[in-house]
Design a protein around this nucleic acid. Structure first.
Lengths: 135, 135
DNA sequence: ACAAATGATACTAATTTAGTATCATTACGT
DNA sequence: ACGTAATGATACTAAATTAGTATCATTTGT
């Protein structure tokens, strides 16, 4: 059981790296060298972050990526959602065909409860909580 | 992002069904009919539960499965572990090669914290919480 | 113009999850 | 004893998800 995929993990590392630089920026090349993440994969992931306005990018020579916002305003939950879809711990496998197991749905309620807790935690966790500036 | 696989989901349904029967038992055939889960898949899963002493089985005519314990003593966490391995929300992808990203490991601490909360909740959740007897 | 950067997109590979098939073994009922 | 109804063990295939690659287009600074 693993809540985080490698993409999310990489994304946090990359963002963390940028956060610790004075200008909050870096190029894909730098990040590849520093973090040992396969370059094309990293690039794709950075583009994704740009699309979702977590990063801003500049093309061309001297270009690169920079944080689009204060790291304090980048939520862990947001990153997870970008790479792993909506935050839910369980989606009823029978959702389409009107669920024939109403009886079991105490499960869903109970899980919903745990789910809510987790989501609240993930929302409350900011990039700055994941990566300490000084470290 | 999905915390539960279908196997775990099915397992809860199957156990819930058995829990609501007077003898806490059923055959694979009954369960297939009642829960609309593909039979060979269900059988495999029931065998797994038997191996882990959540169920007891009896072979031969008139045989079948029964809960090996009071449903109050079957933890949700245990079921997840059986089908999805150890409860961890994140395992450092760099664990082998001594992690070159000590800097980022605030992430690990923070995630560890959320992880612990989730695990505690899952441990505290019993089969009886997932499936109400009367329902 | 050229080099250094990202954007877009389509593809392959690896891993995990879901599901199938088959034969062996056990136990009840006659 | 035999047939039938059940699970045990195991090996396999299929589908879905995740990880990673490749390529070409576009932009920008010098």
């Amino acid at each position: 059981m693993n809540l985080l995929t490698r993409q999310t993990d990489y994304a946090v590392r990359a963002l963390g790296y940028m956060m610790r630089r004075p200008e909050n920026n870096a190029t894909a090349a730098e990040l590849t060298a520093a973090l040992k993440i396969p370059r094309p994969f990293l690039r794709k992931l950075l583009q994704e972050l740009t699309k979702h306005h977590v990063l801003r990018s500049r093309k061309g020579a001297g270009g690169g990526f920079e944080l689009a916002r204060d790291p304090e305003k980048i939520r862990f939950s947001e990153l997870i959602e970008i790479f792993q879809g909506p935050l839910r711990l369980n989606h009823c496998t029978f959702r389409k065909k009107p669920c024939p197991n109403k009886k079991v749905c105490a499960m869903r309620r109970r899980i919903g409860c745990i789910e809510e807790m987790v989501i609240n935690q993930l929302r409350a966790t900011k990039l700055t909580d994941l990566v300490q500036k000084g470290e």
